[in-house]
């Protein structure tokens, strides 16, 4: 991107991704000429005329950025917003602004559904995102935890699991963060389970996000398969908040967000 920025002698280069037309209205859109120069912007329009979305990654020539930031600061009534004030000012002043076309994996995870999808994308062999690429490691904080243990009663496939997990149940198409425990006869499917969460025996978690240190007591059920819904419009990813306990045999419906403890047998 820097090489492209230099080649175009640009003041500002914005990473750009061509998104499906039906999703275009969610994004800040750009229009470009044949050279890749940005000719116009459009912010989340109802009827998009471009599908070139800004990825929110900008590269500036420092002198130019400094100049426009100072001018913006001096301007009366400016809201000092990058997208609303600074970028438009540069554009209307005729600065060289370019779109850098990106074609790798990119996902805006600003909604529950897209966060859930992005996690499960890691399990999709068709998605171009290789975590095992040693030349492009993804660095993070490493939990101090022993390797994960998969017991004789466990059934795990098509999933990701991090260090310190104890897996004794049935895991399919899911992502387990560090130090997650899934007890015997518990099932986790199409779900994301964050660090330290415990899924006790006989509990079922499907199409859900379970946040840090949540406890799903035995026999509880969280979420449902879309196939099992009478009304598909009632379906959605269920979310259990951090440190929340879902009591024995309690039921959490699809699409619900639970941020306080649920007592045994209750429904929410």
């Amino acid at each position: 991107m820097l090489a492209y920025h230099k080649e175009k002698n640009a003041a500002c280069t914005i990473a750009m991704l061509e998104v499906p037309w039906e999703e275009a209205s969610r994004f800040g859109l750009m229009f470009t000429n044949e050279d890749g120069a940005i000719t116009a912007f459009e912010e989340k329009p109802k009827n998009p005329k471009s599908n070139k979305a800004s990825m929110g990654v900008y590269m500036f020539t420092w002198d130019k950025l400094r100049q426009y930031l100072l001018e913006d600061e001096a301007k009366e009534g400016s809201s000092n917003d990058f997208g609303k004030d600074v970028i438009p000012a540069m554009h209307s002043a005729g600065e060289r602004m370019y779109a850098y076309a990106f074609d790798g994996y990119w996902k805006d995870v600003g909604t529950i559904d897209s966060l859930w999808e992005a996690n499960l994308d890691l399990l999709n062999p068709k998605v171009n995102l290789d975590l095992s690429d040693t030349s492009w490691k993804i660095y993070g904080k490493n939990p101090i935890a022993p390797p994960q243990y998969v017991s004789g009663s466990a059934k795990i496939q098509n999933s990701l699991a991090a260090g310190g997990c104890t897996i004794e149940g049935d895991i399919d198409y899911s992502v387990l963060f560090s130090n997650v425990t899934v007890e015997k006869n518990a099932a986790v499917r199409y779900s994301i389970v964050m660090p330290g969460a415990v899924i006790k025996s006989g509990a079922t978690v499907q199409y859900s996000i379970v946040a840090e240190n949540a406890v799903i007591e035995s026999g509880a059920t969280v979420g449902k398969r879309p196939e099992d819904m009478k009304e598909l419009s009632d379906w959605g990813v269920s979310v259990i908040g951090a440190n929340v306990t879902i009591g024995k045999n309690a039921k959490v419906k699809p699409k619900s967000m639970i941020d306080t403890d649920l007592k045994g047998g209750e429904e929410a």
Binding site: A145, P147, Q148, K155, I156, Q157, I171, L176
Partner: peptide, 29 residues
Amino acid sequence: HPVYTKVRDDMPVIYGLGCEVKNSLIADG
């Protein structure tokens, strides 16, 4: 009493479709 070691920034374990894992200790990556 955690046991500390040099970290490697590895990805989580990937369990493929149809794999069968029983009674094993599996490290990152």
